[in-house]
Design a binder for these strands. Structure first.
Lengths: 102, 102
DNA sequence: GCTTACAGTAAGCTATGACTTACCTATTTA
DNA sequence: TAAATAGGTAAGTCATAGCTTACTGTAAGC
């Protein structure tokens, strides 16, 4: 989860990711329209890839990046597995401190 | 989203958060069992609070922290709003590159 | 009121993360 | 095969994040 959340913690990286969500793109095209250098984009893509948020494949000289559903799925699983636990705990605490509503 | 993801990106902070998911706790009790100092825990709690992941209230000299559902809800919204877009894009790209399956 | 427990804040240290430029490799095109 | 395009890697810089110790401010207990 650390890689996943770290990857999404950076605004630029989220921007890249959200742009890829609208369609696969090569590195150079991504770099256009971003206020950072192309190598910086490459580094961000490497981070996203390590997190399982994107995949890449060669297409001639270009390298096409696209969303990898694995990453989003992992977050969803974490969240779901968490959701009930956290909310149960929350409700229990609130009830405990505000008197039994039954 | 930046604060939210940054807060969850740190392993220690996630540990604190997940511990709170099992029940509200004062700072000192959280600090016990963690390999870091109590002030460090305070700082982590401040980050979690700023992200909307926890709330606190005074209880005598103690300060009780508990999960704030707002944070998790925000992630869920981000994810949901994203889910369809990303997966639609993904499917569209895959179909485009592997031939029309119809 | 004085002391002890609880916890936030300040200041300083160190490691890491995001960027840059320079470089190298592989593919296309002329 | 030479030139140009596409993009990953290396090395260095600067800012920030996470930690520590020291301090300050409240609430509780004697």
């Amino acid at each position: 989860m650390t890689y996943l959340f770290s990857a999404l913690a950076d605004p630029t990286r989220r921007q890249i990711f959200e742009r890829l969500a609208k369609g696969a793109q090569p590195v150079g095209k991504l770099a256009q329209g971003l206020p950072i250098s192309r190598p910086a984009v490459s580094q961000h893509l490497a981070a996203l890839k390590a997190a399982g948020l994107v995949t890449d494949h060669a297409e001639g000289a270009r390298r096409i990046y696209r969303i990898d559903p694995k990453g989003l799925a992992a977050i969803r699983i974490w969240l779901d597995q968490f959701w009930t636990e956290a909310l149960d705990g929350y409700v229990a605490e609130v009830e405990r401190s505000s008197g039994d509503p039954s």
